[in-house]
Structure formats: C-alpha cells, structure tokens
C-alpha cells in the first residue's frame, strides 16, 4: 500500500510539470498581456509609463523560455513568486483563499451526500412508487435550475421580507463558528442541492443494478431481510461507481464554485482566479492552477485507494 502511494506520488511529478508548461504557455497566448494591463494602470494613475519599463518591472523583458525556467526554479525552492498587481506573494494569497474554498467544497459535498444517498436508496427500494417518482422529479428540478438564479432569490427575498442578509465579511470558523456558518451554509446548501439531484439519480440506478445481481438473490434465498440486503449486501457494491462520481464532483466544486463565491462574497480560490485572469496576473493564475491540479490529482489518488477499501477485488498496482 505504502509502496503504491509512493509510486503514484512519483507519477504526479511529470503530470504536474506538464500542467506547469501548459498553463504558462496558455497565459502568455491569451490576447492582452500583463504588460498592457500595467501600462494602463500606471497611466490611469497619472504615472507615465511605457511598455519597455513595464516589461522590465514585471520581469517580462526576458525570453519566455527563460521566464519559465526562472519561475520553475523559484517553484522548486518553494517560492511561487509575487502577484503583479496585489502587493502580496502568491503563496500568501493561496494560503488565505484555499481554506475558504475547501470549506465550501467539503460542506457542499457532505450536505449533498446526506441528501443523495438516503434518497437514492429509498427510491431504489421503492422503485416505481409514487414517492420514487416524486423524489426523482424533485431531483431533476434541483439539477436543472440555474444556481445563480436560485442564489439571487435566496439573497433578495430574505432581505425584502425580513431585512436579513448573510454576512459579507469573511470570518473563519475558529473565530466565530456561528458567523462563519451563517455565511457558508446558504451557498453550500444551494451547491449541494444541485449536486444531490445528480447524485441521487446515480445512487438509485447503481443500487437497482446491484439489486439485480445474483448475490442479492443468494441473500434473499438465505432468508436475509430487506433492510440488511439493502444496507449490507447492496450499498457497498453500489458505492464503487458512486465514489468515482464523488471524486469528479469534488474536483469540479473546487474549480467551479466561482459563481457562488462571487454572489455570496466569499473570498475563495475561484473568485481569486477569475479576478487575476481579468488582470492578467500571471503568477497568481499559474500558482492557483498548479494548486487546483495538485488537488484534483490527489483526489483521484484518494478515490483509487477508496476503491481498494470498498472492493477487495481491486488490486493496486
């Protein structure tokens, strides 16, 4: 097991290097460079500036390959560089933003699982009943309603009716759990509902699939009760595809939470990346994408290890 993890971690290195090259190249291929952005900023602030001096300020006067190796060399020393426009190091930005995104992501995931697994199991056990249909219809609605629209309603109506608004300033969970949850719960629940809509349909399908398997028939023939069959014999087998889905969903949530982060004023990674992309703040975007990639790769590794834990037939090689 340890050997397997070590092997997988080693294999992360070439993948990460590929990510570095791609993101570095992509940033520089985007029309409108950081130099233009800086020149614009300086002139609009009344400071005379030309492209050459701006290039020199950003260290972009060197050839692109050289820039890459400088950045890469710094990375190896643990230095992710400094933001072009925020007077902060990239690492500091990530350090403050990452926990926020992770908190939102994990909360969303847990809430969605708490909804989807029981509902999916219930639907499978009562296949084609009225409640099965109702839950599935609600599920489709949950996954198809645009999240920004629902989020707007959630922000506007409480304010209109009860003059209530969620906090706009980020307070960490340790400082004040209540305030923190007041800020995070609404977007987490909204994200989770959308997620749960998809997941519950998947749970239902895979549980039904396992319920048709021969070993379930064996369990019935042994005289085992329905509850045990569902929870002991079927659910664990059904978890194998579900875990794959969860892994994908978690990866998506980290990158795709931009809308909710923006609407609820949550200072997460998603909001940061969009902002930095607009400014062509190359080091911040590069740093964030690197962290995203690392995170997704690690989630995949955890999913693979989870397979082994759920399914004894899986051999990790």
């Amino acid at each position: 097991m340890g050997k397997y993890i070590a092997k997988r971690l080693l294999l992360l290195i070439p993948a990460l290097i590929a990510v570095l090259i791609i993101v570095f190249a992509l940033m520089r291929m985007t029309p409108g460079s950081a130099v233009d952005a800086l020149v614009y900023k300086l002139t609009s602030a009344g400071i005379p500036a030309d492209r050459a001096s701006a290039e020199a300020m950003l260290g972009m006067d060197k050839p692109a390959v050289e820039q890459f190796f400088i950045w890469f060399g710094d990375l190896l020393r643990g230095d992710m560089g400094n933001s072009f426009f925020q007077s902060e190091s990239v690492w500091n930005i990530i350090k403050t933003r990452m926990p926020v995104t992770l908190e939102l992501g994990i909360m969303t995931l847990l809430i969605s699982l708490c909804i989807s697994i029981p509902c999916g199991l219930y639907c499978a056990a009562r296949q084609d009943s009225v409640s099965d249909y109702s839950i599935r219809v609600v599920g489709v609605v949950m996954m198809s309603v645009p999240v920004f629209w629902i989020a707007t309603l959630v922000l506007i109506y409480p304010a209109l009716w009860w003059q209530y608004a969620p906090p706009t300033h980020y307070i960490s969970f340790i400082e004040s759990p209540a305030e923190n949850l007041r800020m995070f719960l609404p977007p987490a629940i909204l994200g989770a509902l959308m997620q749960a809509g998809m997941e519950l349909r998947m749970v239902r399908t895979v549980v039904l699939e396992t319920m048709r398997q021969d070993y379930i028939r064996t369990a019935w023939a042994k005289g085992v009760g329905e509850r045990t069959i569902l929870f002991k014999h079927s659910l664990r087998n059904a978890m194998i595809p579900v875990v794959t889905g969860i892994g994908g969903a978690l990866s998506m949530m980290i990158g795709g939470s931009v809308i909710l982060e923006n609407m609820f004023n949550i200072p997460g990674m998603g909001a940061q990346v969009v902002n930095s992309l607009d400014n062509r703040d190359y080091p911040v975007v590069q740093g964030c994408v690197l962290i995203f990639a690392l995170f997704i790769m690690i989630v995949n590794l955890v999913v693979d290890i989870a397979y082994k834990w759920i399914d004894p037939r899986v051999e990790l090689k």
Binding site: D214, Y215, A219, A221, K222
Partner: peptide, 20 residues
C-alpha cells in the same frame, strides 16, 4: 428460506457477494 429450504445457484462467481 435458507433454513428449511435452501438454494445453490449456477455461477458461484456471481452468486457470492464480492465485497463480503
């Protein structure tokens, strides 16, 4: 079921639960 009348199935590979 399983106590007075029990059953053996054709494919032992699929008739046993793989995760138990």
């Amino acid at each position: 079921r399983g106590s007075s009348i029990s059953m053996i199935f054709q494919e032992p590979g699929t008739a046993l639960n793989p995760v138990m």
